[in-house]
Nucleic acid binder design. Structure first.
Lengths: 216, 216
DNA sequence: TAGATTGTTAATCGATTAACAATC
DNA sequence: TAGATTGTTAATCGATTAACAATC
């Protein structure tokens, strides 16, 4: 099993690039065409493909339709992925109003919140009481959950998710969650991203000063 | 100059852990205490410190207050970091209502939008017309910007940011932006994160089936 | 001092890139 | 066929971990 996150991210990027190729009317492509489009070396493309047993045609490159299907299959795009969100705050709202998921086969089927004022049972994406979470998730066989609650509530929500059968969690709360090994957690942390960015901007500014000194 | 993103992420985590140590009344700490708290090897801690010229006391470990100051300094926390947001949608709202930035010295000073209905000049965090962006950013010496607009507008917003003196951009639009080399871009892509998560969940499920087979 | 911990060098590990024989 | 591109092996690169002499 491939455990390298970067490699999977590249597969997603390959897929996106291949959609563009298809829209441009292409029928086949080569490892260097795709590599250039995504910004990686052609040998990286071939290596990634070979890790997943994808093969092309020596001299003839790769068949576009075939590859798109293959990548969709690897990335779980061959069936609709149903996702639930806990927390109907601004993040929750941003997620359900985001139009990009649908075309990627990701479907947010419902949101759960603890605040009765937020319940909306009749919407396309209903907002339901938290105590209906477990039965809903089990009845609908949902594997993926998104935590969009304040950090103080996040661990409790994760525990509930694990206990309900959720196997993958995207966590927006800025804390480090403890989970059993059966649940995969992926964190999105705005604070950390910004702090990182600030470091690199400062570092670049300093570097520039040094370079100017050298020139002067 | 250190260019390893993971290393900087670790520094942020070290800082967070040291805050906790301080809250617990500690005065000094060792590389293995910190390593355990953050989940990295003690030699990794020492290596990271040495990359930034941070030294402790052989046998005596590291002074907590001193290290916190040092890390704050490296991460640009010794002064308030002013940030502007473009796009007053759900992401924009989520960002300005997020309480965690303040204690980290990150201050969102204003949001810009193209829709007059969203302008709110008198708020703590005002929402201003996009055409005031450049002068505002230049007058206030702002280096960091967040793109929270639909993908169709993102490249244009980035170009405006670069032209206004912004040097670091956190991009929430799900497209690959082209920038001049002077501007650092960091992408947050929910779709990509979810796709990734789905892959790893599926992979784990398959792995489990294999394991069950082996046991049976 | 004796013992524990740092700081740094060397070893390991994993991922990316280069090279090239196989082959369509 | 000749030439171009794959698929895979080997080389390189960079980051993490281990080891240990220096030293407080």
């Amino acid at each position: 099993m491939i455990t390298n996150r970067n490699c999977i991210v590249r597969l997603s990027r390959y897929k996106k690039a291949l959609y563009r190729f298809k829209a441009m009317g292409f029928v086949k492509f080569f490892s260097d065409t795709l590599g250039e489009a995504v910004g990686v070396a052609p040998s990286q493309v071939r290596k990634d493909f070979s890790l997943f047993g994808i093969s092309g045609n020596r001299r003839g490159g790769y068949n576009l339709d075939q590859l798109i299907k293959k990548l969709q299959n690897i990335l779980g795009k061959d069936q609709i992925q149903k996702v639930v969100v806990v927390g109907m705050g601004n993040i929750g709202k941003a997620l359900i109003s985001y139009r990009g998921f649908e075309k990627e086969g990701i479907q947010i089927v419902s949101v759960f919140d603890i605040d009765p004022a937020k319940f909306e049972k009749d919407q396309t994406v209903p907002v339901l009481p938290l105590n209906e979470f477990k039965s809903f998730v089990q009845d609908n066989n949902i594997l993926i959950g998104i935590i969009a609650v304040p950090d103080i509530a996040a661990q409790q929500v994760l525990d509930m998710m694990s206990a309900s059968g959720i196997r993958g969690v995207l966590n927006f709360a800025p804390i480090r969650l403890k989970s059993d090994k059966d649940t995969v957690i992926s964190n999105v942390n705005f604070e950390l991203e910004l702090e990182n960015l600030i470091y690199f901007v400062n570092a670049a500014e300093k570097q520039e000063l040094i370079n100017e000194d050298k020139i002067a």
